[in-house]
Design a protein around this nucleic acid. Sequence first.
DNA 1: TCCGGATATTAGACAAAGTCCAGATCGACG
DNA 2: CGTCGATCTGGACTTTGTCTAATATCCGGA
Lengths: 136, 136
Amino acid sequence: MHYTRDNMAGLLRSHDINPTHQRIEIAHALFSRQEHLSADQVMAIVNTRHSETSKATVYNTLKLFLEKGLVREVIVDPSKVFFDPNTSPHHHLYEVDSGKLSDIDAEHVVISGLPPLPAGMVTEGIDLIVRVRRTG
Amino acid sequence: MHYTRDNMAGLLRSHDINPTHQRIEIAHALFSRQEHLSADQVMAIVNTRHSETSKATVYNTLKLFLEKGLVREVIVDPSKVFFDPNTSPHHHLYEVDSGKLSDIDAEHVVISGLPPLPAGMVTEGIDLIVRVRRTG
DNA sequence: TCCGGATATTAGACAAAGTCCAGATCGACG
DNA sequence: CGTCGATCTGGACTTTGTCTAATATCCGGA
């Protein structure tokens, strides 16, 4: 599967998102890299050659992608939110010093013994973040 | 154990923190409530009667408490950091709609199957956050 | 008691992330 | 082509948090 811009249009449509120029560029930035990017980084990537997409649009679009389940939000750093194009169940490894964020496959991870939820509540998601630091 | 201001002074000393007026007030705000508070909330509480403590001091003090292991940082909301006076191992339940944050005792929770850490890394902490939402 | 240095506090300027809005622009369709 | 709803935009604004230089407080020793 190549993350071409044409394929992005299809991906957007399949998530009920009208594929505009800007949205395709933003989706392409996220999916072709398969990395965790902040809004800032997305903006920088999309506007490398010449300014194409405004800050407001980047934020609006990322929020839209989030609502439509195209990307996932990862909150590990108090100063910025990361957007993750991988929506399959997985966890995160965060290197505190460098700010590097990587995936931990959920396949073999088991979390057991959680207490029952309060009445009238449904789980929206379980975030497991392993914070690590370089020794010495 | 009552969380009197006098006891706060002892608590601070036992964590190698010089117990000043402002620090005692801030510690008292956190520990007497045993709740998760943001810097904003701490500032509001400490300055209810009349302005006593500046913003800079609140931030400096919370950071100091963090370094000295007196409180713990909880990152669940992209817009603000919460400070948790409970430093014993535990997890968190976050109600997305209301922003309410509560503890999950770690005693019976088991997390297994995590992959080995990259070489030269040590775990700084594992954060488990259960995000819930009220059923519609 | 007075002095001096170390530690703490402060106001306010500043920075960065994100939101908001009113107007401009786009693009599909008749 | 002209219209209309959807989208995009610049820029002002808000909020959280940081920084700095000046001031205040504390404490030990002469």
